[in-house]
Amino acid sequence: MTDKSGRARLGRRVIAPVLAVVVLAAGAYLWLDTNLFGREDVCGGLVSSGSAEAVFPHSGRISDRAGLDDSSSDRIAFTCTVESSSFLLGPETEYLKISGSRERGDFPFSEYGRWPSPATVSFFSGGATGGVGSDHGWVLLPDACTTTDGPAIIEGYAPEGSDSVKFARLLTEVANNTAKRGDCASEKPLTAPQTLGTAPEPHRVQEGAVCGLTALEFPGPKAQARADVTETVQDSAGPTWSCEVDDHATYAVTQEPRLVAGIRSSPRFTEQPRVAGLQVMGFDPTHVVADCAGIPTYFSMEVHQGYTSALEKPGAPSLRGLYDNFVDIVGERFGCGTS
């Protein structure tokens, strides 16, 4: 009997410290590698910690070390970096950069290099208007937030491997919070998409069917159209179409109402020379809005090095000729006709 009691006491003495270590380890993990019992929001209340945590590919502690930078007098403008740090699972810290700003209305199509190619972006509209690329996304704020300086947007950079739907959800949430902060929220909050289209894969340009369209001219010497040049075509059922011919040109057309409204309300939007016989207004001769069967339709063309370096070669179309051909051929899909 004594031996059994002694063994029991010994067992309790061994188990108690082990349990204590397990509890401490579990507590350390929850505190250092998750956001349990952490802050509910960061960036001055604009970013929900839970929504930010969902975007990061790995678990970690959520913080905004430098906090919200809102030094501008514009209540829409700010920058903030959200961090997810993990002590037990590795020293690497992941970052989520969020900002609010005013942009020229055609920003997703006209600033090649800063924004993802529109041919690789998953656009969405309806409850909210925006787009998400591999690690970069944006959402328009409500129309009431637009001023003479242009429409307001939320822009974000997410770590590689982030879930695009959760990223769009976060950006939409921040857009709603920012609109409240700027006293321009709509009566009905913006709602994020439940699903997003898959980004298209690049493929070789087919002779006689650039961007999948017969009669669309190749943006370079004709002989080069048969070379190993790839293209990426964003051809979803939505109101935005885009095609990038690698290193040569990127085309985009949109009839998305809120995007076009932002374009038309931007500074320096004025009358431009006719394009393919159409009366147009815009920012310059290759970024314009035309009337297509009563629907304002935006056309954008950005040329790249593969085109500009070949301008002196035989068979290279002129910039004006290339753009006229683009508006003429692609415009047919959007109900455009000479007016």
Rank of each mutant, 00 (worst) to 15 (best):
A25R: 04
V132R: 01
G45T: 06
A28V: 05
S85H: 03
Q279R: 15
V205R: 00
S134W: 06
R9Q: 12
R7L: 13
I153M: 11
Q305R: 12
L213S: 04
G105H: 11
A227H: 14
P267E: 08
S99H: 04
S125D: 13
S162H: 13
A128K: 01
V121H: 03
Y95L: 14
G50W: 08
I263F: 01
A175Y: 06
D291W: 02
G208V: 07
T286F: 06
L96I: 04
A209G: 02
V165T: 13
V229K: 08
R320K: 14
P189M: 07
K97M: 09
T270Y: 10
P219A: 10
L46D: 02
V260T: 02
G126T: 10
D228F: 14
S125E: 14
G90Q: 04
R333Y: 11
T286H: 03
G337D: 08
R13H: 10
C292L: 07
S242Y: 12
V47A: 10
L216P: 08
G262P: 00
D324Q: 11
D163N: 15
C336N: 00
L140A: 00
D324F: 11
R274D: 15
L32F: 13
A128W: 05
V174C: 05
D324P: 09
M301D: 06
L278A: 04
E231F: 12
A192G: 04
G38S: 14
C243Q: 00
E207M: 11
T81G: 00
